[in-house]
Design a protein around this nucleic acid. Structure first.
Length: 637
DNA sequence: CTAGGGTTAG
């Protein structure tokens, strides 16, 4: 009876209900609302004991409430619900529906929904109703196959349920979930009744297949649009990397659409983070703080992520600290650990992880990716090994291929190339191109030419079109002065259809984005920009900067044509543009789609000194904070 | 006493 204080609220009121003296409220509400107030499995079990001893479990209504609590609350357990359900003598259709729904939510248990459904129609000869079909189609769309879906659909037709708008929508959703949007559309077209939901499901279906053109087409044709319709499109834009479009639509939504909600803002913040749109991100933060939107864990995580990706890691950490009370879930923790990690602040990441343990928040696989990356950036090999091993032994999280990739990167970067290769051969899954790429990168850093050549060949066979890796291989050849072989690989890259992504950097000035490609001359200020660039290069040279023309070794991803040369690399254009158009001392934030090349890195260090500016560059993988001639990455990236 | 739509992190 150690938990007696916990149980008392349930007991008191429920017993009141059993007493002949009824309170001022309809008595049946009370025990239900108190069951609702259960806050832990302990309390649920106590409620269970009580329901058994009072015989209340025999009431279908009460039993159903109890099952729902078990199946749908965050601390509940479907297994427990199933056991309770199995002990109910004659469960009615209602209870069966609840169990079908309970199993439909998790993709690993969806087949149980089907088993229960079969027992309903075969064993019990009950006639399923529209609720049954809604839950079942959900289960099918989640993880079951076409076969089951069709069976259920035929059954729905048989019992005359196929024209109920809820059932039709669930059916459309099932096809959309499978990625069969055209099938979904056929259902939509021949449905006798449709509503806003039907449209939203179709828009979501096209977004799910990445077909933004179609999604927009449907969005435009909608008779009415609600916050979900808008949010779906915005999220879709973010998913396919059209961040500017996402922000544009968000602005339009603010002008003519419904009020955004927390879902909308999560997507918008992701767009801001990717664009390094700090001003707009701040605006969202203010919007939330004004009380327009209720803050939740996801939103907090998105804010932290946005600030971190906009280079404001200190502020990101402050937002996390202020977010007390919203730290039960893993998301804000992952966001702040990931932020520290990408800014090379390994110690801080580890501190947060320790704090997380103290507050008893369970890490997940993303937490460990962030932690391993943090160790990698801080050269903390032993710590990294420790975290990697603790995943399975302490937290029951089996390492996935990404985690192995982090380990290869960590070990390789630190020079443990043999151990890194052993990790690859001991992995339970087949290594992918990213894994070999990490090892190849390590070979380049540590100038292990033999291994590099061997790995490079494996990689090239695996994915001949992976330009980055081919470039790496070519660099390894040229670094060991094997010019002919280097030339062959380079020519192959050319022949392979020039799939190389051009370097592209952008900068936000007063909420407007300016993008620069390599050697870009399309910007209206081009003339001044190139004049400024010349002047800048001269100043840098006076300060001691030496262009690293011949250094193909460090020229990892940036294999632009020789004649466009280093001085026109996109980040130099963007930085110069930033210097021209902002007041002295203003920090300059650049985002680049590829990795920074060695020469630009060197030049930026000088720029930060010569112009006395803080320059924050986000490349494809991590951040570089340049200040007074020094970069936060300590020249290791 | 049951229903339907959409999120984050590498």
């Amino acid at each position: 009876m150690g938990h007696w204080p916990n149980i008392s609220p349930i007991l008191t009121v429920t017993m009141k209900r059993c007493s002949p003296f009824k309170g001022p409220f309809p008595s049946y509400h009370k025990p239900i609302s108190l069951l609702d107030s259960c806050k832990s499995m302990e309390q649920i079990k106590q409620a269970h004991a009580h329901l058994i001893t009072t015989g209340l479990l025999l009431s279908p209504i009460r039993a159903n409430k109890f099952l729902e609590k078990l199946a749908f609350s965050s601390f509940g357990s479907i297994l427990y619900a199933r056991q309770v359900f199995d002990q109910i003598p004659f469960p009615d259709l209602f209870l069966h529906n609840t169990m079908i729904k309970a199993h439909s939510l998790s993709s690993t248990s969806s087949y149980n929904s089907m088993i229960i459904f079969r027992s309903v129609v075969r064993g019990l000869s009950l006639t399923p109703n529209r609720y049954t079909f809604v839950f079942l189609f959900k289960a099918c769309g989640n993880s079951l196959g076409l076969l089951e879906g069709e069976q259920v659909r035929v059954h729905a037709i048989k019992v005359g349920m196929e024209n109920n708008v809820f059932v039709t929508n669930a059916l459309i959703g099932m096809y959309a979930n499978w990625g069969l949007v055209e099938e979904a559309r056929r259902m939509f077209d021949c449905s006798v009744e449709r509503d806003l939901y039907s449209w939203n499901i179709m828009v979501g279906g096209y977004v799910g297949t990445g077909d933004m053109d179609r999604a927009l087409e449907w969005f435009d044709r909608m008779p009415e649009r609600d916050v979900v319709s808008w949010s779906t499109i915005i999220a879709g834009y973010v998913q396919v990397g059209c961040f500017l479009e996402a922000l544009d639509l968000f602005h339009k939504m603010l002008q003519i659409g419904p009020k955004p909600n927390e879902f909308t803002l999560v997507s918008v913040l992701a767009a801001c983070a990717n664009l390094v749109a700090l001003d707009q991100g701040r605006w969202i933060h203010v919007y939330i703080e004004r009380g327009e939107i209720k803050m939740n864990e996801q939103l907090l995580a998105s804010l932290i992520d946005m600030y971190a990706k906009c280079g404001q890691i200190e502020f990101a950490s402050k937002v996390f600290c202020n977010g007390r009370g919203l730290r039960r879930k893993v998301w804000p923790w992952n966001a702040v650990i990931g932020g520290f990690s990408m800014h090379g602040k390994s110690k801080e990441a580890i501190e947060i992880f320790e704090q997380m343990k103290l507050e008893k928040v369970s890490p997940n696989k993303v937490t460990f990716i962030a932690m391993l990356n943090a160790c990698s950036h801080g050269n903390m090999v032993d710590e990294g090994r420790g975290y990697f091993e603790s995943m399975a032994s302490c937290y029951g999280i089996e390492p996935e291929i990404e985690h192995y990739g982090c380990m290869v990167d960590l070990l390789g970067r630190a020079g443990f190339l043999d151990e890194a290769e052993e990790i690859i051969s001991s992995m339970p899954m087949a290594p992918d191109a990213a894994i070999w790429g990490a090892l190849l990168g390590a070979c380049r850093i540590h100038k292990d030419m033999e291994r590099g050549e061997r790995i490079g060949k494996i990689l090239k066979e695996m994915d001949p079109n992976h330009i980055g890796c081919c470039v790496l291989l070519a660099n390894i050849y040229s670094a060991s002065r094997r010019w002919n072989e280097a030339k062959v690989v380079r020519e192959e890259i050319e022949l392979n259809g020039r799939k190389k992504i051009p370097g592209c950097s952008s900068i936000e000035l007063n909420g407007v984005f300016h993008q620069f490609l390599v050697g870009d001359r399309s910007h209206p200020q081009t003339k001044q920009l190139y004049l400024f660039l010349d002047e800048m290069t001269t100043k840098l040279k006076i300060a001691g900067y030496v262009p690293q023309f011949g250094d193909v070794l460090l020229d990892i991803d940036d294999e632009e044509d020789k004649e466009t040369a280093l001085s026109k690399h996109s980040e130099k254009l963007a930085i110069a543009f930033g210097l021209m158009n902002t007041a002295p001392q203003t920090p300059i934030r650049i985002v680049k789609n590829l990795r920074v090349c060695g020469d630009c890195h060197e030049a930026t260090k000088f720029i930060s000194k010569v112009y006395d500016r803080e320059i924050i560059v986000r490349d494809r993988i991590r951040y570089h904070h340049f200040k007074k001639g020094i970069c936060s990455c300590k020249d290791c990236w």
